[in-house]
Write a protein that binds this DNA or RNA. Structure first.
Lengths: 130, 130
DNA sequence: CTGGATCCCCCCAGATACTG
DNA sequence: CAGTATCTGGGGGGATCCAG
């Protein structure tokens, strides 16, 4: 299994761009700026829209809404609307979403452990430019 | 350790935007469209520029060049220039880069294992819209 | 062969205002 | 409270040409 090009033959992309390789397809979805943050937040507990908004901090309502919808479409999270006034909506991880936390945690742990190393590499690189 | 907002206090972002949380910082770098593909390719063997270009398939030379430089800056890969004619440049993973393959592989494995599940979720979602 | 420089287009995403 | 609608700007990224 390779991450490289789809079939790379000259498919004119039949209307919906067709699925590329599975890995690309998945990573394109969770590789954006907010998905991982949302999944991480929901990993702690189920949350309402504004709670998420406060938790993340620097995400617009628009992007939060978009990203939540995409994650719901892909089966990572479940959205429950309670038809009250004022309306209440709760988001929580599905089993699929929870299973994703496992590889995600390992990635987060790596990032945490090696951040200093990366910062050092950046500084070294800049010193070279002198 | 939370993925949420930096310090979220009202820092006016001192010129360089300052580092946010480590995890965001790292993920922003490898979360783009090409980094993981390149790291995966180099995980197999060291490669030259055009070899990488062919291996990935649908990346422009510009983006390949940019991404390689960023990965080099961050210490994931090493670039070796052989001053011959025609010039030869070889890219390979550093120890840091190789260590990153571990959490990355687990992510790739998850994606591979759950891609069908995700596609099913998408189809179900569309059926609802009927 | 290995890129850099330039041009340009499109889409993402922020801001703001509005609705149920 | 939980979003959507609209407008707008910046930049990501492709294509092409050029250089060492």
């Amino acid at each position: 299994m390779s991450l490289s090009s789809p079939s790379s033959s000259s498919l004119p992309s039949p209307a919906t761009a067709e699925q590329t390789c599975p890995i690309r397809d998945v990573l394109d979805r969770i590789g954006d700026q907010w998905s991982l943050l949302i999944l991480d937040a929901l990993g702690t507990r189920l949350m309402r829209f504004n709670a998420l908004h406060r938790e993340i901090g620097d995400v617009s309502k628009q992007m939060l809404s978009r990203t939540l919808k995409r994650l719901e479409q892909d089966g990572f999270i479940a959205r429950t609307l309670y038809p009250e006034v004022p309306p209440r909506v709760e988001y929580e991880l599905t089993p699929l979403g929870r299973s994703f936390l496992v590889p995600m945690k390992s990635l987060v742990a790596w990032a945490d452990a090696n951040h200093a190393h990366i910062c050092a590499a950046r500084r070294d690189y800049e010193r070279m430019a002198a």
